[in-house]
Amino acid sequence: MTTLLSLQAVTGGYGDANILHAVSMTVSDREIVVIVGPNGAGKSTAMKAVFGLLNVRGGSIRFDGDDITGWVPNKIVQRGICYVPQVDNIFREMTIHENLEMGAFLRKGDLSAAFDRVYTLFPDLKERRKTPAGSLSGGQRQMVAMGRALMLDPKLLLLDEPTAGLSPKYMEQIFQICRDVRGTGVAILLVEQHAKQALEFADRGYVLAAGQNRHEGTGANLLADREVAEMFLGG
């Protein structure tokens, strides 16, 4: 497997203060990687650094052969990374279909293949394509948000706490969808609060604390690590 994304000793934050201190991580092709850690560990911040939403003051971010450090989000989207924020991640007053269309805004030409792909992944959405997205349940909204991001055919999908506020049943469903998405050739980097479930499902994981790398490894290894367990898995 080739490395798709790599962060090397990334330091940065919003404004002048640094939240991340020399954070490093990699994501390979078609890999599902999860970032876990206690509140305020800089998990979402690390993800935003990839997407150009942070002032990166040290280190570098490389994606698919390019140094993308300091790129603006617009350019990063076109390069093949799509980002799903944790909240406010849909256009509430637009229909599901229009949400997807906006996701493909930068794409020229025929979109039918992209629509087919998303609707195949999310058959529920196809049935309700004319429904305003704001009227959907939390889990379905998350699907719209992911669908919107997939419309540009990214190589890497960034998901910020996709299961926040969802019932265990929906959480399982979102994880299953992530596997399906990976099956279509997309790597996924996600931030999760539900550390235990996420580590069971992901290929690899990073544990961040206080803006620094603390542990890394396969999901199973991390779950077995006593220190990790004591830190925040509740023993």
């Binding site: 989207v77 980002y83 924020p85 256009f91 007053e93 269309e101 906006m102 996701g103 805004f105």
Partner: peptide, 22 residues
Amino acid sequence: SKWGKAMRAMSDNPNLALLSGI
């Protein structure tokens, strides 16, 4: 139209519209 929808998107959720490359 595409740009008409983009206007609605910007009204609906400006951050997401920018993230979508509008």
